[in-house]
Design a protein around this nucleic acid. Structure first.
Lengths: 168, 168
DNA sequence: TTGAACTTTCAAAAGTTATTGAAATATATT
DNA sequence: AATATATTTCAATAACTTTTGAAAGTTCAA
């Protein structure tokens, strides 16, 4: 397989994966494109490579920056802004996990806490079934929360231990 | 908070969570409804409770059964089919993880394997950047795969250890 | 201060996904 | 076998999401 074909396939696959995870397809494709680019890319180059409009490129690059997995870089002597992706995929993974936890798990933990306060007769089987389900989900959610926190933190440990080795 | 309000809030929250994970909102809401129901529910009851059409109810209940987190039960003396959700949320979680791994992670592992075979001069920085990225992602994907497999398996351990206790 | 280069915004259009409901099919009852 | 009840399918449509591209906004050099 030649490089251009391989690149195209990777961008496609990454876009599909993103879509299944509820991420905008274009956003995932821009991410893929930047991941395999040896140099920073400008908005123009992204538009060209993926055949998308300026607005679309701008919007999704911004969202990737919000997620903390892409950043703006300034190339000396150039007016334009250029973009690079975090190349360490472990870092990108934990950044994504951090963001999704914030957007998804934290709100549901809050709702579950509220729902525990439901009034009613413990002998009513409807109340009983509800309470039990909520409490089980809560337990599960807290375990998941702990696991995610460990994952997110593991990156820092790895980072610092590697850094220590590098700086001796 | 009264029970009906609490139920409504839970169904809403679960639906929202599902949507963010790329799961059909109605599918998540039916799951929520069944989770907190003390008795099996019929298609009619689901349609009524969520104010959805027969076709929609049918389609999403079927999909939940495909995922292995809802099943059909037959109530003696009734013509209709009734549905219940797996109440052990840990089991449901691992079933979901198993399904998503199959649909999402496994295909990308396959693509990554292919992309390793890209031809080209190792000195070409484009080829080099591409190769390195693919290999890093592959490493990460394999780690994730291992972690997911452990999670999925943990349920079985729990299941068998509990079973052993029950049957003495 | 002007204008060229570049970025951002946003309303309209295109594209995608979910839902409805009536018809077709299947299953049970008499 | 005929009828009643229940389930499934699917084409049409509604709801939602993404994308476009032109206009507005910003920045900077002269």
């Amino acid at each position: 397989m030649k490089l251009p074909e391989a690149k195209a396939q990777f961008i496609q696959a990454w876009g599909l994966l993103g879509a299944q995870w509820g991420v905008n397809r274009t956003m995932a494709q821009i991410h893929a494109l930047l991941l395999i680019a040896p140099e920073p890319l400008s908005a123009e180059e992204i538009m060209e490579a993926l055949d998308i409009s300026r607005g679309n490129a701008n919007m999704n690059v911004r969202e990737l920056m919000n997620w903390g997995i892409v950043e703006k870089v300034l190339v000396p002597g150039e007016r334009k802004e250029f973009f690079i992706a975090e190349k360490d995929i472990w870092k990108a993974g934990t950044a994504i996990a951090r963001e999704r936890k914030k957007r998804e798990l934290d709100p549901i933990l809050k709702v579950l806490l509220q729902l525990n306060k439901v009034e009613g007769d413990q002998k009513d089987k409807h109340v009983k079934a509800f309470r039990e389900t909520i409490q089980n989900i809560q337990k599960f959610a807290h375990q998941t929360d702990a696991a995610l926190n460990a994952f997110i933190k593991s990156e820092e440990h790895w980072f610092y231990s590697t850094l220590l080795k590098v700086i001796r």
